[in-house]
Simulated assay, not measured.
Amino acid sequence: MNRTRRVKIVTGLKCNIRCVFCYYRDNLDAPNRKSDEILQDLRYAYRRGVREVDFSGGEPTVHPDLPKLIIAAKQQGMERVCIISNGWRLADSKYMGILKDAGLDEILFSVHGSNETVHDELTATPGSFARISAAMKNAVDLGLAVRVNTVVNRVNLADIIVVSRFVANFRPIQVNFITVNDWCFAKNLVDKLMVRYTDMAPHLHSACDYLESLVPAVNVRYIPYCFMQGYERFVCNHRQVPYDPYEWVPRVRARLEQGTGLIRYLAILGYGLIVAGEAKNLFRKNFAKLLDAAVTEGLRCRFYTKALTCNSCRFFELCDGVENTYATEHGLGELCSVSGGRILDPVCFRREGSSELMAYAE
């Protein structure tokens, strides 16, 4: 499988709504980043082989220079430009038309409910469901590709299948269900929003069943494989990320992440190489793949944990386990070992016509 050539570039943490689970909730009034800094990130990414970009925030549409940034990305050589958006400003079809004329190709919408009761509660912004609904219709009318993120939590769990039916009306090319991830859950709300995988799985299975024939790419992100038996093809955890064309190149994302300077970046790589053990592949992989693996394995080693029973599971190499936050809140008792031959290829279920037992593809 081809490796992703896409990365996220942050335009700033400033946002015009207040999602209750937002990791950056205390920083949503921060100023936008300077355009020169963003353009520098674009040049950095392009030099490292990135050819597709997701402008993210906060909310990128609150940046006054967004049309110019899209133009600059295309002039830089980016083949595909996307924005990750809550849709509030994009309900204005004239503004969306400006972005399309600048070179925008697709929009990744954050849809957290199928109606205003659920969605507006999670965004803490009355009217946000009506505006994102209008925004997605505008995108379809203008011929822009639509993608969807839905953060699965206690408030919208029973609504997930209805969300699936709702977003399918806009012919998305990708739908992501994001489960337990510290980047999506404000720490002070973990106990109120975090759902057990045991409770989550049946709803996710139903959503995947419904969307599979309608949407080219359906992903469940950050979930142990033992909860997705029979649905393994939908799982996208850290080892699957480098092969997902809509995900971000690990080594470039880590360098450009908000607040990451050179010293912190080197520390991330060092942790992945030494503590997570990726240094063993120093002479087995090319340098770019080694750095990607160092970031990936560092994340898995630092922020995730597994139960002892996981050691005998056939998915051990593919699976991240559960985040430390989840383990603290709910323990590890739900995890189970799935019997069968050990699977080494991280994308065997996502590789059409492949054998489950292919060697680890690097």
Rank of each mutant, 00 (worst) to 15 (best):
F109H: 03
E121I: 01
D141M: 13
H119K: 07
I107T: 05
I107S: 03
F109S: 00
S133D: 13
E116D: 14
V118F: 09
A135Q: 08
E121Q: 15
N115E: 14
E106G: 10
T117Y: 12
E121Y: 10
G143E: 08
A139H: 05
A130P: 07
L142P: 11
V111I: 13
H112K: 07
M136K: 01
L122G: 01
A135M: 09
A134Y: 14
K137G: 04
V118Q: 08
V111R: 07
H119L: 10
R131T: 06
G127M: 08
G143F: 13
E106A: 12
D120A: 10
S114C: 01
L108K: 11
A139G: 03
K137M: 10
I132T: 02
D105R: 09
M136W: 00
M136N: 00
G143C: 12
D120H: 04
D141E: 14
A135V: 12
G113E: 00
A134K: 15
G143P: 02
S110G: 03
E116V: 01
L122W: 07
G127T: 05
V140W: 08
I132G: 01
L142E: 11
I132V: 06
T125N: 08
M136A: 08
T125V: 12
A134N: 12
P126F: 07
N115Q: 10
P126G: 03
M136Y: 00
L122P: 01
H119C: 04
L122E: 02
E116F: 10
G127R: 05
S110L: 13
E116T: 10
T125I: 13
S110N: 07
S133T: 14
V140H: 01
E106R: 15
L108E: 11
R131Y: 11
S133N: 15
S133R: 14
A135W: 04
L108W: 05
A139F: 04
A134P: 14
S128W: 08
S128Y: 09
I107C: 02
K137W: 11
E106I: 14
S128F: 03
H119T: 05
D105W: 04
P126N: 03
N115A: 12
A135Y: 04
H112Y: 11
R131L: 09
G113A: 08
S114N: 06
A124V: 14
F129V: 03
A139S: 01
L108C: 15
S128G: 10
T125A: 11
M136H: 04
G127P: 00
K137L: 12
L108Y: 02
F129A: 01
K137E: 09
I107K: 03
H119I: 01
I107N: 02
L142R: 05
H119R: 06
V140F: 11
E106S: 14
T123W: 09
L142V: 15
N138H: 07
G113S: 02
I132H: 10
G143D: 08
G143H: 08
